[in-house]
């Protein structure tokens, strides 16, 4: 994903001389191609994420379209107030890129587990939160955010994600994207856990539809109404805390639609994610996902223990 991201950003930077990339002294062996091609639009600000966001705000005020790059929680939780006040309140053209979503840096420990960022960033007015599921979705969200003029966030996994999409995705797509067709249950995922869920559906011959949600802030009421008509059960899956994350966003919107009389039946919604815990032990991404319980149930009525 990070390779696709930087390749796409370089392509966009050739067309758009406003694009500027800042990093917080992380991105070694990834960012060099941008730095080499566009040295006047690249800067390593040092290990100083608060200042990185402030400098990004200043550059954006002067007309640049700024991307900030770092890993894990450093470009998000570490500098939340700069994101909220300097960037979002001023509606500045700054896109935050974090590599290492969820447990992508699993063995490095809790410092490097990015598991609360969706909740915190999606609460800020004007912030477009995205989490691509594979390389094609990474290209989609990167190009989209290059066109946006306001704040955005790209939650990247790391590298080696399973390619799920077989055909290019329409450039203007903001909807959930269907990647498997099933019967009465739809699995809604966000981020790189998509590949794992598709593997589970395929390997276990589950008759579940699967949808990927790269644009978490853009969940469409119309699409949710349609999903409610087609499916008895929705299962949300995220590599993130259940509190306030993607599943919460889906349930909030469903509740609003139900309260407004736009859906007559509230579907059974199961939220799969991290159940309010830190995983303080070492482990691969796959191991930590399983320990957190990020596993699909076998059939629609199976109880999921928490």
């Amino acid at each position: 994903m990070r390779t696709t991201f930087i390749k796409t950003l370089c392509e966009e930077a050739r067309k758009d001389e406003r694009l500027f990339l800042l990093c917080g002294d992380l991105g070694f062996s990834v960012l060099e191609q941008f730095a080499d091609q566009f040295p006047e639009r690249y800067l390593n600000v040092g290990v100083a994420e608060q200042n990185m966001m402030q400098v990004a705000a200043g550059l954006a005020m002067e007309g640049y379209s700024v991307f900030t790059y770092s890993i894990g929680n450093f470009p998000t939780l570490r500098c939340m107030e700069q994101i909220r006040y300097d960037i979002c309140y001023h509606r500045l053209n700054v896109k935050i890129v974090a590599v290492g979503a969820g447990y992508a840096y699993g063995p490095l420990g809790v410092s490097h587990h990015a598991t609360e960022d969706i909740a915190m960033l999606r609460a800020i007015p004007g912030m477009r939160v995205t989490a691509p599921g594979d390389a094609l979705e990474t290209e989609l969200v990167t190009r989209r955010l290059c066109r946006d003029t306001g704040p955005g966030y790209i939650r990247l996994n790391k590298a080696g994600e399973k390619p799920v999409h077989r055909v290019p995705i329409a450039a203007d797509c903001l909807d959930m994207i269907q990647v498997r067709s099933g019967k009465s249950t739809a699995v809604l995922t966000t981020g790189a856990v998509l590949g794992d869920m598709v593997d589970q559906v395929d390997a276990r011959a589950l008759e579940f539809s699967v949808y990927s949600t790269p644009f978490i802030s853009d969940i469409s009421p119309h699409q949710l109404i349609e999903l409610c008509q087609r499916y008895e059960q929705l299962i949300t899956v995220e590599e993130h805390q259940l509190n306030g994350g993607f599943g919460s966003a889906v349930v909030e919107r469903l509740a609003d639609l139900h309260a407004a009389g736009k859906i007559s039946r509230f579907p059974r919604v199961r939220r799969i994610g991290i159940p309010g815990t830190f995983q303080g032990f070492a482990g691969t991404q796959e191991y930590l996902r399983a320990k957190a319980g990020i596993v699909l149930p076998d059939k629609q009525d199976q109880h999921v223990d928490r």
């Binding site: 400098v55 200043g58 700069q82 006040y85 309140y89």
Partner: peptide, 25 residues
């Protein structure tokens, strides 16, 4: 007014970005 403030310690970094933009441009 260039920047809303009130939370302390924000303006100098933003001004650094603005000053850097002036240098680059």
């Amino acid at each position: 007014i260039e920047l809303s403030t009130g939370s302390l310690g924000h303006a100098l970094g933003v001004a650094c970005g603005v000053a850097l933009a002036a240098k680059r441009k």
